[in-house]
Structure formats: structure tokens, C-alpha cells
């Protein structure tokens, strides 16, 4: 899993490329931690190139959301592929991690 961090106005985009699983979930956690430590609390996980997410990957997204909200920010997810939308809806996590169609949509009101 490659994670690329870019600034997008007041938001920080974490572009996650590859598979977000038990073995790679810690990368996302670290990336969120680092962003929050740098004072960036409005985060978007760009999942357009995330092929697969397992439950540990979902766990990393949920932890990221909690971390960002603790600091008064938020974590939003953008452009998930079908497999990712399926696991989000199966676990009802799409109600806390509402998927936005694009990064643009996710950052519009920030």
C-alpha cells in the first residue's frame, strides 16, 4: 500500500494505492497520526485506487475518523470502488464513513 499525502485547500488528501488490509492498515494509521500531528485535521482518504479493504482496513479508517474528530476535524472517504462500498454497507459503516463520489465533493464545504 502506497499512501501519498497532498494538500487540497484546508484539507489533506491521503491517496491510498493498493490493498488496505491487516498487513497495510498500520500505514494508514501512521499517515493519519502524522497529518494530525502536523495540525491537519480535515482529512480525505482518497480510495479511488484502493482495490480491496478488509476488516482491519476498515478499522484503520474508523480509527482515523475518531482521531480526526478528537481534534475537531473529520475524515471523509472519497471514490471507493465497488468492493469497498460493499463492505462499508454490509457493516453499516457507511453511516459513519459516508462515501463521497470524488475528492472534490468530499472537500466542498471545507
Amino acid at each position: 500500500m502506497e499512501i501519498e499525502r497532498t494538500a487540497h485547500g484546508s484539507a489533506t488528501v491521503l491517496r491510498c494505492q493498493g490493498r488496505l488490509t491487516m498487513t497495510s492498515a498500520s500505514r494508514l494509521r501512521e499517515a493519519v497520526d502524522q497529518a494530525v500531528q502536523d495540525g491537519r485535521h480535515r482529512l480525505v482518504a482518497d480510495l479511488a485506487e484502493t482495490e480491496f479493504v478488509d476488516s482491519s482496513g476498515l478499522g484503520a479508517l474508523v480509527s482515523g475518523l475518531k482521531r480526526a474528530r478528537q481534534c475537531g476535524g473529520d475524515l471523509r472517504i472519497a471514490a471507493p470502488v465497488e468492493q469497498v462500498r460493499t463492505v462499508l454497507s454490509l457493516t453499516n459503516l457507511d453511516r459513519v464513513l459516508r462515501p463521497y463520489p470524488t475528492v472534490e465533493d468530499a472537500t466542498r464545504d471545507w
Binding site: V62, T91, N92, L93, R95, V96
Partner: peptide, 10 residues
């Protein structure tokens, strides 16, 4: 099915 989240999220 229901709408509730898993334990440990909310």
C-alpha cells in the same frame, strides 16, 4: 438486516 454500527465504532 439493520442499521446499527459494529461494537467499538460509535
Amino acid at each position: 438486516s439493520g442499521w446499527d454500527p459494529p461494537l467499538g465504532v460509535v
